[in-house]
């Protein structure tokens, strides 16, 4: 039997934005402290310059903490009650640096069912692009949420 998914298809590809999001040295330091990161290119200006950066840069997944700045709507999926964070993809494109001002743009990328040993689940995938103050794309992120029967 083919599962007929009902959800708000008008959301597919529609942009939801947030920003500007200021990336400060302090924020990078606090993030590093919280995850135990000690590489000095993230916390020490001189070491960052020695590595060829103008200032300290952010660890590669820091942008994920900004994802919830984007208010994403309920897609009104007619399937399952339990939802959980099923997976995530991060693609750093260019360094995010202290002093950057980011914009985040998210859209509903796809909604699809998958049947496995534990039954059918429906995956909801949101894609987010982060750009800096020069309009350069610095990171692409995809979040997958699963709805279970």
């Amino acid at each position: 039997m083919v599962l007929e998914l009902d959800y708000d298809r008008s959301l597919l590809g529609k942009d939801h934005r947030a920003g500007p999001i200021e990336v400060t040295k302090e924020l990078i330091q606090d993030f590093c402290k919280a995850i135990g990161e000690t590489n000095p290119i993230y916390t020490d200006e001189e070491e960052a310059r020695k590595a060829g950066y103008p200032t300290v840069i952010a660890p590669p997944t820091l942008c994920t903490i900004f994802l919830r700045r984007v208010i994403i709507p309920d897609i009104r999926l007619n399937f399952g009650k339990a939802r959980f964070h099923a997976g995530q993809v991060v693609e750093p494109i260019a360094p995010i640096m202290a002093g950057d001002s980011l914009m985040a743009s998210s859209y509903l990328k796809e909604v699809y069912p998958k049947t496995g040993r534990s039954g059918t689940m429906v995956f909801i995938v949101w894609a987010t692009t982060f750009t800096n103050q020069r309009g350069e794309t610095v990171a692409e992120v995809q979040e997958s949420y699963a709805a279970r029967e």
Partner: peptide
């Protein structure tokens, strides 16, 4: 996202001069 950040740390610790280009995880 915290677990993912700590997992990325393993890689940045291992290759301080490397650049992480892609990282996908399944929870």
């Amino acid at each position: 996202i915290m677990s993912m950040a700590i997992m990325a740390r393993l890689l940045t610790d291992w290759s301080p001069k490397g650049v992480l280009k892609h990282f996908d995880v399944v929870f």
